[in-house]
Computed example of a mutant assay.
Amino acid sequence: MLKFSDFEPIIKIKFAMKNVILFFSILYSLNIYSQEKPNYPEPEKGMKRVDLKLPKIENDKDYKVEIKFGMEIEVSECSDVQDFSFNSKNLENKYAIPPYRYPYYVLPKEIPVDIFTFNKSNCKESKKVKKKILSSQNIFREYNGYYTIPFYIPENWTIEYRLWKVNSEFKNVEH
């Protein structure tokens, strides 16, 4: 007749095997889900990298971020320039870890820009002043205060942003 002590070594081996399998399963899952550090490229000559880091706020799901590009130009004192425009399709969305992790944005170095100026009447155009203008394009993104969002833009450009509070209620449109 078999005794319990006869099966003790087999039970110990099975228990040890379960622990080994559990250990390697945990190690494998940690390796799969571990955060890789993004490897962003260095900016090209004539370009700069600007990191958009949003402040931490409560209820961040209630906010959107509006992003605009800015530049400082020299114009006549008589000029009433408000903004500039460019083809926003030139703004490339890329990822540091493909396919969809750690997004960053790139504008070409030599991007064509349209600046419309209107001159005030009865004004001497000889005096020049520096004026900061913003792009007319509105780029809206979900609020994310955890990660910085790198932008690669021409050296003389800036990144500007503002937060918009979202009203989460949808209203029915009446006929």
Rank of each mutant, 00 (worst) to 15 (best):
F118A: 15
S121Q: 10
K124P: 08
V106G: 01
Y95E: 10
E44N: 10
E58D: 15
R141T: 11
R162D: 05
I57F: 00
A96P: 02
I67K: 00
I13C: 04
S126N: 09
V113C: 09
V166K: 15
E74L: 03
I133H: 08
P55M: 05
L134T: 08
T158K: 06
D62E: 15
D114I: 13
P112G: 11
K89N: 09
Y102D: 12
N87K: 05
D51R: 10
R141Y: 11
F170T: 11
A16W: 03
E160P: 00
I21C: 09
E74P: 00
Y152W: 00
F84K: 04
M1P: 04
T158D: 11
S85H: 00
A16V: 01
S135E: 10
L54P: 01
P154E: 04
D6E: 07
K56N: 10
Y104F: 11
F4N: 05
E44S: 11
D60S: 11
F84H: 03
I13W: 02
C123V: 08
P108W: 01
Y152V: 01
C78G: 02
K48H: 08
I159Y: 01
K89T: 09
E125C: 00
L22G: 08
M47R: 04
K165G: 09
P43I: 10
E174A: 14
E77N: 05
S34Y: 14
R101W: 08
P154N: 04
I115L: 08
R49C: 14
L2N: 12
N31Y: 15
L52E: 06
F86E: 02
I13V: 13
G46F: 03
P108C: 01
Q35G: 02
F151S: 00
F140H: 06
F7V: 06
F15V: 08
K12C: 03
E77T: 06
E169L: 13
E125T: 07
Q137S: 12
N167T: 02
Y28K: 06
K165C: 10
K18M: 13
F118L: 15
S85V: 02
S29V: 09
E36H: 14
S135N: 11
K53M: 15
L163T: 05
I139T: 12
R49D: 10
F69W: 02
I159M: 01
A16F: 07
K131R: 15
N156L: 06
Y161C: 05
W157H: 03
N119I: 04
P154F: 04
Y143Q: 08
L107K: 00
D83R: 12
S168A: 07
I21V: 14
V81Q: 05
I32S: 07
K45H: 12
S79G: 01
F23M: 10
F84I: 06
I153D: 00
I149V: 12
P108N: 02
K37G: 07
K130E: 02
F24Q: 03
N39G: 03
D114H: 09
N59T: 00
P103A: 11
S85I: 01
S136M: 10
Y100V: 12
F69N: 00
K37M: 12
P38V: 08
E160Y: 07
L27E: 00
S76M: 02
W157F: 15
R49Y: 12
L91M: 07
